[in-house]
Structure formats: C-alpha cells, structure tokens
Nucleic acid binder design. Structure first.
Lengths: 206, 206
DNA sequence: ACTGCTTAGTCAAGTTGCTTGATTATCCAT
DNA sequence: ATGGATAATCAAGCAACTTGACTAAGCAGT
C-alpha cells in the first residue's frame, strides 16, 4: 500500500514547507533588527516560541492572520516578504566607479562637507545600505543617530576621528570598525585631505 | 532584549582576579574574530570550557603556559594583551589595517587561492558579515551558495569576473555590485595581480 | 459524511553557547 | 611541612534556539 509518496518538494531541495516562497530569512532579519528573541516575538503575537523558530527556518508557512500580526510587530510590511526582485534586468546590479550618484547631505548645517556616494540600489525593502562617505578636511557628521541594527565601515583613504558612545578613535586607511547602531555616533575628518569611508548599515528602514 | 552591560566592575574593586591587567575583553574579541566558541577554544588549548569563560570575564588569570597556547590559537601575540590601546571597554570595535586575521579558507567548494580577511567579529546572531576577499590571479570561488539575504561588494583593487545567475560581469577597482543571495554566484580573478574585494553579506545565518 | 492526506500550530525534550558555584590541584611563602 | 591563595575542573544552570512527536483543522476524492 505504501505508494510513492513524496515527490512534492523534491524540486525545491529539502524539507521546507511545500516549496513556497521562503520568507524565513527576512523574518529572522527583521526580528534581529529589533533585538527581539523568539520568545519575545512569540509572546507578542500569541503563538509558541517553537513556531517562530520553524517559521524562520522555513519549516512552516504562516497563516495570513499570523503573518499579519507578525509583520505588524516587526514593523515591516507584507510586501517586504515577497518582492525579491531588484528592479531592472537580472539579479546582479553593478555600479561603475565613476557612475554612482552622489548625494550632498546637508541634513542640517552640522553636516559639513560630507558627500555620500551610493553603492547599491536603494530599494524600499533592502536589508543593506552601503555608501561611501567623502569627508572634507575638518568636515564631519555630528549626527546623534541611534537606530537599531549594526554598522561597520572601512576607511578607503584619509583619516577619521570616530566617536561611538564615549569612545573616540582615530582611524587610518585600511582600518575597519564595527558597532551596534544604538550607540550614538559621529565623526570628523582631522586630516588635511579628503577622507573616504565605505559605510555599511543594516537596515536602512525604520 | 536589551543588552545587559553590567558595567559595575570598572572600578577594579569587583570580583576580578587580583586587580591585574584585564585581558578578558581582548581574548573575547580575538575569539569572536575567529568565529570560535568557548568550546572550540577550550578544546584547542586543552582546558575546560568554563575556564575560558572565566578568563574572558576576568575572573581568573591564566598561567603563562595557557596564555601562550591561547594567543597561538587565536593568532595574536602576548603583547597584544598588554598594550593599552583604545579597544577593550566600549561598543566600538576597531581592527587595524595590518592586524586583522586572515583565513585561508577553503569554503566548501574549490576555492583557489582565496584569502579572507575578517573585518568584523563573527558572533552567532550577527546581522552583518564583512570580509575582504583576496583572490590570486586565476583563482576564484565557485561557491554554489544560495542562502537568504543580500550581498554586495566593492572592488578595492584588481579585476574580478563575477557570475550571478547567468550574468557575468567584469569589475574593476572602485566598482560595486549587489545581488540577492538566493542567486548562485561565483567569481574568478582574470587579471594578473591580486584582486581585493570588500564583501558584505547579510544575514550570515547559514 | 467519511476517509485519508497535508500542514499550521503546540508541547516537551534536546542542543548550543555561555556563566557560576563548589571543589580539587598546584604553587609559593612562611 | 603547613597554610593560604588561586589556577583549573566538574557539574549544574540559564537563555536562546531547534527538533520531533503530537493535535487539529482544512481540503481532496471516492
């Protein structure tokens, strides 16, 4: 009686739930962004902790009701789960060295001579935000930004005085840094030539 | 889940071992940079896991023999424990240009002559994973990885042939790229000198 | 309706990574 | 020796997460 049975998910390679779209990774990302644990999320939407675990590992598909509560709690929208399309032709998006858009950010007058150069497309639901900050000598960003997530940077050239919390650190070309975005952070260029820093944020939303 | 910081023992009166120099934080940083667990380190130098924990929490001072094995395993030198540079206390994590661990990784696939240089510590639930890939001429990684998330890169120097899905693109110094990690991707270095690419993944949950 | 299959969701046990308290072993100074 | 400090171990515990067995609800097809 035991017939050939499975075959259903053979195409999608494993024990994921039914071969549907995989949203687990994005859910996990959004959760980690908010600094929540499985238990937090589970309690927040009224399901079990293990169920969230299975969701994030694509072992199950949530019902619409659950999904709705979930995205509401995580501060994302349902659309963010499904559009994995980068606009344009293929999935690969390349921006050439001289052809990237530069944004002169003078959010306030405190942002002296910082030019942002966008390295990746800014889709609305992106998980990454990467820019090259060009800071003129004496310039800097005294942003008292404090958002969730993590950020890191790599000094391409020049010198940078980076302040994070109450730590100040002078960075030179080739140095890299990392800190949780909750910390207040700002920077200035103490050198006498332009500093260029490749800066990575996650996530850009919220 | 806010991060609990405890921060009480800064005044050297706490339960740290003997009021000596505190090397725990640096040991932990070095360990995280290598992406190792307490158990890994403990097994690597032949002590118990809990002992490493106490070391990193400055509950105990290692013997010279243990310290020697420790720094050998972590790829640091004993001097790095005692020069009172910036790092140690706060949330900011800085890796100097020449001091980053390089991992001659043979990822699962054939990874010909690719050296990874880790730019940020590798914790379990990190949202970012950033490395500099050093690819020798003719070398490359044909990783058939397909995980959830996004990734991007920035060519620091050299030339790279990047394959994503069925697209192939030749990249030069200063170019940047971006694609969703679900796509199969690999790369080779078609040039005649080393290529260095700053590579960002999110999330590294696989 | 009934039967059977699939699957969202729960409960409990297991795993991992780390911390802590109690205990033993080792060194060093009287 | 002998006692005290402490390096190091063992075992228990905790928190975050995963996994397997189970329950229940939906949706087919006779």
């Amino acid at each position: 009686m035991a017939r050939e049975q499975k075959g259903a998910d053979a195409a999608s390679g494993g024990d994921d739930a039914g071969g549907d779209i995989k949203i687990g990774g994005r859910l996990r990302h959004a959760r980690l962004m908010k600094g929540m644990s499985l238990k937090d999320v589970a309690a927040g939407i009224g399901v079990s902790e293990s169920f969230i675990s299975k969701l994030e590992n694509d072992k199950v598909q949530p019902s619409l009701a659950v999904l709705h509560r979930l995205v509401a709690l995580l501060g994302i929208n349902v659309a963010a789960m499904f559009n994995n399309e980068t606009e344009g032709g293929g999935p690969l998006f390349v921006m050439r060295a001289g052809e990237r858009p530069t944004i002169t950010t003078r959010l306030r007058q405190k942002t002296d001579g910082v030019v942002l150069e966008r390295l990746i497309p800014q889709t609305k639901n992106a998980l990454l935000q990467v820019n090259i900050h060009q800071v003129v000598p004496g310039g800097g960003s005294h942003g008292l930004i404090s958002h969730v997530g993590e950020e890191m940077g790599y000094v391409l050239e020049g010198t940078l005085d980076l302040t994070v919390g109450d730590q100040v650190c002078r960075l030179y070309a080739g140095d890299s840094f990392f800190f949780p975005s909750e910390e207040l952070h700002g920077y200035t260029n103490p050198g006498d030539r332009v500093a260029r820093i490749l800066w990575v944020n996650t996530p850009p939303t919220f």
